[in-house]
Amino acid sequence: MARRSESASAPPWLIAAMRLGVLALLLLLWALAADNVSRNIIPSPLETLEAAVRLWADGRLPGALGASLVTYLGGFVLAVAFALPLGIVMGAFGLLGRTIEIYVYALAATPRVAFIPLIILTLGLGIEAKLFVVFLGAVMPIIINTYAGVRQADPDLVEMARSVGASRSRIFKAIVLPGAVPYVLAGLRIGATIGLINTVVAELYTAVTGLGGLLALYGNTFRMAEYFVIVLTLAAIGVVVTEVLRLLELRLTRWSN
């Protein structure tokens, strides 16, 4: 919805130009900060770029990136596969939904990091534990949003569908589920964000691997240029994933132009 007014108020080239301008400004501020704060704390953009090239060439960055992506995307896909059907079923069967929603909300309100010791005890320190930490972070917003989307089906459209004699299952397929799509997409976006956070958390608290592992390594040894490379890589993953989800949303809501 916000996108529509954004594109209506300014031409795309202007937005792109403005964004590039802000990027240049940020780089400038970064360079200034690097010049004025001790080099050991804030590396210059150039030093960071050199570190990135180095880390990529010696294979450490690709390796860590691959490991993190497996954890992240694996846990996220598991979360979607679990949360979508559960949210839909909760929304479709009101009694079931009302019965378990309170537990879902309670679990969603608990800091999931609190479960990490328990997860390590039951699943160990390997990929299973990492996947589960990501899963646990991403699953709640997807369940809650899917559930809300299904429950908030437009009663006017449902009545219209009833008046043309549509069966319950047809109403569910043609009205309720498509109507929940924007909610589901919002849930996916929140879940993807929390999933990325939990990827790093998992890599810090279980067997230290991936980008989270490098983050700890370079942070603890004050290799700040390398450390910045890892932070920027994580930011890039976040941007790419949310952008993909945004494109998906644009595609699925073309009708609202």
Binding site: D156, L157, E159, M160, S163, I175, P178, V181, W255, S256
Partner: peptide, 13 residues
């Protein structure tokens, strides 16, 4: 049946 608020399905042509 025709309703005041049209009740068209917005994602359908």
């Amino acid at each position: 049946m025709v309703f005041q608020n049209f009740r068209l399905i917005p994602w359908r042509s």
